[in-house]
Write a protein that binds this DNA or RNA. Sequence first.
DNA 1: ATTAATTTATGACTATAAGTCATTGACTTT
DNA 2: AAAGTCAATGACTTATAGTCATAAATTAAT
Lengths: 201, 201
Amino acid sequence: MNKRQTSAQETRRKLVTAGLELLKEKGFDAINVEDITKKAGVAKGTFYIYFKRKEDIVLDISRVPFGEIAEELQKMEGLTITEKLPHYFHRFMECVESCGINVCRQWTRDVLDPNNAPNTKDGQKWKYDFEMLKGILEDAVSKGELKKDTPVELLTHIIISELYGMMTCWCMSDGKFEPLDWTDRFCNMQIDAIFKQYIRR
Amino acid sequence: MNKRQTSAQETRRKLVTAGLELLKEKGFDAINVEDITKKAGVAKGTFYIYFKRKEDIVLDISRVPFGEIAEELQKMEGLTITEKLPHYFHRFMECVESCGINVCRQWTRDVLDPNNAPNTKDGQKWKYDFEMLKGILEDAVSKGELKKDTPVELLTHIIISELYGMMTCWCMSDGKFEPLDWTDRFCNMQIDAIFKQYIRR
DNA sequence: ATTAATTTATGACTATAAGTCATTGACTTT
DNA sequence: AAAGTCAATGACTTATAGTCATAAATTAAT
């Protein structure tokens, strides 16, 4: 046999690609590690070189679409908070839609996995979203867009809860309704209602 | 040994009680079926007489506190929708708080478990909440409190997403903030913002 | 060019816990 | 008192997550 033909990064990519396809199609519980490695064309043990637990691959799988949102937000320096948030919501729900129910389901379940608590090395999903959004709010406070007494932590939680709730709900309704319709019609309205009292005019 | 001392119902109750205590204390992943049966003083196989899967006991465990809310709502016939909803939110978050993080975590994870899809026999959690809330909204429409063109399904989804999002968020923040504070300060405001356009005056 | 060190891959193996089922004892009915 | 039912048991099967000693391929050092 010829071993070490491919670089480590390439193998990891193969695993993530295979994992994404299987997860989308069958859901997390219905596939096992061997299914993933077989599809990726490697041995079972190889999986555990790249991921500590079966669950850990989901983070990588979802990092592709959701990671892009974060990058986009970094580039929106010039915009105000009232422009940034609707964009963020819209993009988030676009990702939810394109990832599909199985991926989103497992993504949210992983967030709630106690072994993935936000303070552990592997529980960065939640913390990442949280810190990024918090940063945006803090930025708005320091720029004077929001009042100084804005409860930034709590508002960040509220915004995220909005996203997670929406995603959960969409998964449970088996994709019956349009997530983007929801965001555009209601989320912005809700966010408006909350922010109104903290916006300086 | 003397078997059949206790009725089936009594054994089930013992399992649920033991399960609740262990779940609260250690979390779902950290306990196994034998832990539960040992604490309940029965054999492992007995568990599977009452529950098809390990996960199924969580539904029973949470039915105790959350079930009461539904009963309360039934009794509030006289109230308007704008009185019912804040009450529901408040009570829901009271339950969340009293159940604790571990129970709520697993509860939400179970809701997202594909084996517990809303249309399966065991996936009634979600459907139950959903139908009850929907009923309240439909009631409000038929009474003329809400306009005839109110998108009842979508609004029901939004309300539930609010609750689930809040609960998820609270679990993730390790109980740092007061869920009741959140509900009273923000949720009602959000719901108001959405309902405003559908309320007939 | 040869040896040593490092990286990556392997798959048989172990460990754990979920879930099954044939058996049995206690109680009930006829 | 025999037949039937209910509830409980725990040894057993099964499934799969995760480990690890071994080895091949590659790179670096002498």
